[in-house]
């Protein structure tokens, strides 16, 4: 079906990963940092599926399902932590919690 070489597809996934990495490094709002982590996980899963469709194996899609599981667990725990942080500090700035105790 699609006749693009694997290089360009992986280049696309890498560009998406870099987008997420730049977002993680630039933004200080912790919700945006979590969203950038989501973008990075998604692009890593995209590489798995690209490789699986290149070699005609189902293993890449199985790996995508595992990455989906990890991502769901990470998001639930991370959002609960963000709620606790907002209730304690009344801010979403990641630099506000750079001390272990206040």
């Amino acid at each position: 079906m699609v006749t693009i070489s694997m290089d360009i597809q992986i280049l696309f996934a890498g560009a998406l990963f870099l987008t997420g990495l730049v977002g993680l490094l630039v933004r200080r709002n912790i919700i945006f940092m979590l969203m950038s982590i989501e973008i990075m996980l998604n692009s890593a899963a995209l590489v798995f599926v690209i490789a699986g469709s290149h070699w005609m194996q189902a293993d890449g899609q199985v790996m995508f399902i595992f990455i989906l599981t990890v991502s769901a667990a990470e998001v639930s725990v991370g959002l609960a932590l963000i709620l606790q942080m907002y209730h304690h500090y009344r801010t979403l700035d990641a630099d506000a919690i750079n001390r272990l105790r206040d």
Partner: peptide
Amino acid sequence: IFYIIGAPFI
């Protein structure tokens, strides 16, 4: 993109 590289379930 997943659909057009042959992974409709994903």
